Simulated assay, not measured.
Amino acid sequence: MFLRLLFVLLIAFNIAVGAWLLLGQDDSHGRSVTDPGVPMLHLLSEQTAPTAPFASRPPASASIPAPTSSAAVALETRCLAVGPFDTPQDLRNARTALAGPGVRMRSRQEQTTETRAWWVYLPAPGTRAQALALARRLGAAQVGDYFVMSSGDQSNAISLGLFKDPANARKRRDEVTAAGFSAQIQERSEQVPEYWLDLVVADGARFDWRGRVRMAGIGSHSTTCF
């Protein structure tokens, strides 16, 4: 009787274990051990390293614009000086004519040496009396239009004329020389002001300053930018 009961219990136990193995393992039948919509938890040791494609993907540098260099900006402008103008009013007129968008200007004044005339003369002798005697000899030789200088650094020299045209000065010298006197020519110059207009314009612009400033004797050259 006891052996029969033990045999029945073993059979029941085996049936129970078989049912648990068959129905109690969710993973073996593809069922999730979590509720629907809830992600499954994993141990840190079970997680895999991130895939390499994202780490090895090269940066998209083509869309980043290259910075503009200062040298390229500097090439966009050119600078020139226009002049010289004889008077401040001429300078103001030119400034008005050249004003416009993209044009930067500044005015300046400089001093220059300019030949004003050519002087024909006889060098001063040693004394005033000698200068007067030389003048009487000129009159006797029919050389007119002269006078003896009485002051200045050319005192006692004999002036034979002041000429704007150098050709006329040479003609007068040759006439007096032909009469037997050693006439000379001296260039007379002085410091005079001249006026300039400096411009900064766009290099690619069709800037025609000559079409706006119609004055004789005005030119241009490259200058330092400001």
Rank of each mutant, 00 (worst) to 15 (best):
M1Y: 09
F2R: 12
F2E: 10
L3S: 13
L5S: 12
L5G: 10
I11D: 09
F13Q: 12
N14G: 15
A16T: 08
V17Q: 11
G18V: 11
L21I: 11
Q25F: 10
D26W: 12
H29T: 13
V33K: 14
P36M: 08
G37H: 02
G37P: 02
L41Q: 11
H42Y: 15
L43R: 14
Q47A: 13
Q47H: 07
Q47D: 09
P50G: 04
A52H: 11
F54H: 12
F54L: 15
A55F: 11
P59G: 05
A60S: 12
A62E: 12
A62Y: 10
A71F: 12
A74W: 03
L75R: 13
L75A: 15
E76H: 09
V82T: 03
Q89L: 12
L91A: 06
N93Y: 00
A97H: 00
A99Y: 04
G100F: 00
G100H: 01
G102F: 06
G102R: 06
V103E: 04
R106A: 07
R108M: 04
E110A: 15
Q111G: 09
T113C: 01
W118G: 06
W119V: 00
V120W: 03
Y121K: 05
L122K: 00
A124P: 03
A124N: 05
G126W: 09
Q130N: 07
Q130T: 08
A133C: 04
A135P: 03
R137E: 04
L138Y: 01
Q142R: 14
Q142N: 15
D145N: 13
Y146M: 07
F147E: 00
V148F: 07
M149K: 04
S150F: 05
S151A: 15
D153W: 13
Q154E: 14
Q154K: 14
N156P: 05
A157E: 03
I158F: 00
L162D: 08
K164T: 15
N168I: 08
N168Q: 14
R170V: 10
D174Q: 06
E175G: 05
V176G: 00
T177S: 10
A178L: 02
A179S: 09
A179M: 07
A179D: 00
A183G: 01
A183Y: 01
Q184N: 06
S189R: 09
S189K: 05
V192H: 06
P193Y: 01
E194V: 12
Y195E: 03
Y195L: 05
W196T: 00
V201D: 03
R206M: 07
R206F: 06
W209V: 02
M215I: 03
G219S: 06
G219D: 09
T223C: 10
T223Y: 04
T223H: 05
T224R: 13
C225Y: 01
F226P: 10
